[in-house]
Design a protein around this nucleic acid. Structure first.
Length: 281
DNA sequence: CCCCAGTCCTGCGGGC
DNA sequence: TGCCCGCAGGACTGGG
């Protein structure tokens, strides 16, 4: 579930680790199937212990610690991963720990209930490979309106499906795709090549507005309660959702339509049939 | 180019 | 009441 706003909230929550020296790397004991942590423990330690964290960045939906030895540690939370400096929600899903010195937080934790996420230590060259322009488009908060349009206006894909493609734009996931299309008044199944100039303009504006507001609220904690910030506190944006997971409810924008759910490339999409007309599909 | 189905994984909630 | 199954979807892969 963590998308751009949640991952950005994680990043901000752990900014206090900048300047820390890594003094220990531990894969925590866990009864569950182990998550992907690469490279193996000995190489991970050799290439990180004794180094300092020079910055904490977000790349799409990943949290990246840049080390002063040129390597980076990349946390990829996927569905249920959390990057924490406070106590985790529980012990049994705690997967990984960095022990730190020289800063207030003494440790950085990776917790993951479903374990689909990963922790990787990558060289500068590997970073370029993993996050090169063929793998990852411009960040959803940095892309210009013209570029968004030019990247997609020739595509026959549905706009909602295209927004989930990280090669087009990085950071948008299933939840915020529905929300920003609703805010822009665009039918999610509308083909990219049928969007008007006005559609692209409104989509760009809504993309920024929705993501910025969600960051202000520190992300969305859905009913399963999984998502937490770095201090293990829930986000608040779920109360602002207008369509996501609100099937059958009255649309809060127009007060007329009932939120509909459809499936696009095996994912749920929510929209308001009044605010998001199918015309021009 | 794009689509689709399958894979990973755990916990939950619906249905019987 | 208890158990089973389906579902949640981010990133990736292989086949069409």
């Amino acid at each position: 579930m963590p998308e751009l706003p949640e991952v950005e909230t994680m990043r901000r929550g752990i900014i206090g680790v900048v300047g820390a020296m890594i003094v220990g790397v531990e894969r925590t004991r866990c009864q569950l199937k182990p998550i992907s942590i690469t490279p193996r423990a000995d190489a991970f330690r050799r290439r990180s212990v004794g180094s300092r964290i020079s910055s904490v960045d977000r790349v799409g939906k990943r949290v990246v610690l840049r080390l002063d030895n040129g390597n980076s540690i990349v946390f990829e939370p996927r569905m249920t991963g959390l990057v924490l400096i406070a106590e985790p929600p529980n012990r049994e899903h705690l997967r990984f720990r960095l022990r730190l010195s020289g800063v207030k937080p003494r440790q950085l934790l990776y917790w993951d209930r479903r374990g689909l996420g990963s922790v990787r230590l990558l060289s500068a060259r590997q970073m370029q490979e993993y996050f090169g322009p063929e793998k990852l488009g411009p960040d959803a908060l940095a892309v210009a309106a013209d570029e968004l349009r030019s990247r997609l206006c020739g595509s026959r894909r549905a706009i909602k499906v295209a927004l989930l493609d990280q090669r087009v734009v990085a950071g948008i996931g299933n939840l915020y795709a529905s929300e920003m299309l609703h805010a822009a008044g665009i039918y999610p199944n509308k083909r990219c090549d049928r969007l008007t100039r006005g559609d692209w303009q409104r989509l760009h504006t809504s993309m920024n507005d929705v993501l910025e507001e969600a960051i202000r609220y520190e992300g969305s904690t859905l009913s399963d309660g999984t998502y937490r910030n770095a201090l293990n506190d829930p986000g608040g944006y779920q109360d602002c959702h207008r369509v996501y997971d609100r099937e059958g409810q009255l649309c809060p924008s127009c007060g007329e339509g009932n939120v509909k759910r459809i499936v696009q490339s095996q994912r749920s999409t929510f929209y308001c049939p009044i605010c998001q007309k199918t015309q021009g599909r």
